Computed example of a mutant assay.
Amino acid sequence: MSKKPRTVFRALDGILLFDKPLGLSSNQALQQVRHLFRAEKAGHTGSLDPLATGLLPLCFGEATKIAGLLLGSSKAYETTAVLGVTTDTDDADGVPLLERLVPELDDAAIEAALAPLRGPIRQRAPIYSALKQGGEPLYAKARRGEAIEAPERDVVVHALELIERDGPRLRLKVECGSGTYVRSLVRDLGETLGCGAHVASLRRLWVAPFTQPRMFTLDELQALAGQGEGALDACLLPIEAGLAAFPRVELDSEAARRLGYGQSVSCDAGEDGLVAVFSDAGHCLGLGQRQDGHRLLPQRLFRWATQSGPIEHREKAEQTSDRSS
Results as ranks from 00 to 15, higher is better:
residue 151 P to I: 11
residue 154 D to H: 13
residue 157 V to H: 11
residue 158 H to I: 04
residue 161 E to M: 07
residue 162 L to K: 06
residue 163 I to K: 11
residue 164 E to F: 12
residue 166 D to A: 15
residue 166 D to R: 15
residue 170 L to M: 12
residue 171 R to K: 15
residue 172 L to C: 07
residue 173 K to Y: 14
residue 177 G to D: 10
residue 182 V to W: 05
residue 182 V to M: 09
residue 183 R to S: 04
residue 183 R to E: 05
residue 186 V to F: 08
residue 187 R to A: 03
residue 189 L to K: 07
residue 190 G to W: 03
residue 194 G to C: 02
residue 194 G to N: 02
residue 195 C to Y: 07
residue 197 A to V: 02
residue 204 R to I: 04
residue 205 L to W: 00
residue 205 L to A: 04
residue 207 V to K: 11
residue 207 V to E: 10
residue 208 A to V: 10
residue 208 A to Y: 08
residue 208 A to E: 15
residue 210 F to E: 09
residue 210 F to Y: 13
residue 211 T to A: 09
residue 213 P to W: 09
residue 213 P to S: 11
residue 218 L to N: 08
residue 221 L to I: 10
residue 222 Q to P: 00
residue 222 Q to E: 15
residue 222 Q to S: 12
residue 224 L to R: 15
residue 225 A to W: 02
residue 226 G to P: 01
residue 229 E to L: 05
residue 231 A to M: 07
residue 232 L to E: 07
residue 232 L to G: 08
residue 232 L to M: 10
residue 234 A to S: 14
residue 237 L to E: 07
residue 237 L to A: 09
residue 237 L to N: 01
residue 237 L to P: 07
residue 238 P to C: 06
residue 238 P to N: 02
residue 241 A to K: 02
residue 243 L to Q: 01
residue 244 A to M: 13
residue 245 A to F: 06
residue 246 F to I: 00
residue 249 V to D: 04
residue 251 L to R: 04
residue 254 E to H: 11
residue 254 E to F: 10
residue 255 A to F: 00
residue 255 A to L: 07
residue 258 R to A: 15
residue 258 R to P: 01
residue 259 L to H: 06
residue 259 L to F: 05
residue 259 L to D: 02
residue 260 G to E: 08
residue 264 S to I: 01
residue 266 S to D: 09
residue 267 C to P: 05
residue 268 D to C: 03
residue 269 A to K: 13
residue 270 G to Q: 04
residue 271 E to K: 14
residue 274 L to P: 00
residue 277 V to K: 04
residue 279 S to P: 06
residue 280 D to Y: 03
residue 282 G to D: 02
residue 283 H to N: 13
residue 284 C to N: 06
residue 287 L to I: 10
residue 287 L to T: 03
residue 288 G to T: 02
residue 289 Q to E: 15
residue 291 Q to Y: 04
residue 291 Q to T: 15
residue 292 D to C: 07
residue 294 H to V: 12
residue 295 R to T: 13
residue 295 R to N: 10
